[in-house]
Design a binder for these strands. Sequence first.
DNA 1: GCCAACGTTGGC
DNA 2: GCCAACGTTGGC
Length: 135
Amino acid sequence: MNYWLIKSEPFKWSWDQQVKKKTTAWDGVRNHQAAANLRAMKKGDRCFFYHSNEGKEIVGIVEIVKEFYPDPSDETGKFVVVDVKAVEKLPRPVMLTEMKQTKTLANMALLRQSRLSVCPVSPEEWAAINRLSGL
DNA sequence: GCCAACGTTGGC
DNA sequence: GCCAACGTTGGC
């Protein structure tokens, strides 16, 4: 199983909305590197759900329930979506500042490339963040 | 509100 | 194909 992190501005789409709707298409990705990550996702993979701008923290975990297919909101037909389902809320959100202070996480794609909205997470990073959150 | 880091567009 | 100008994201 692979691990990922997906970002959303809570004003546009928040964790609470994700929980309420349960399963949704993760649409609107218009960056090729982020899209490549979406294409690499497999059913059953887990993703951290990160609130950008407002919050700047990981709040929950979602699971990939459907692998990539064309983004209905993209007229060019180049970009894709995956379906994600809310799995669990972190016992305690993990803030960006905490991640920056954690040595194991220094090389995280999230920290190195702040603009990338879909990033890979290594198993070590996944475990370290779970530890920070109290899971 | 500012700015760094990118990505994209368009003139040449 | 290069590069300047511009737009966007997201942290601070």
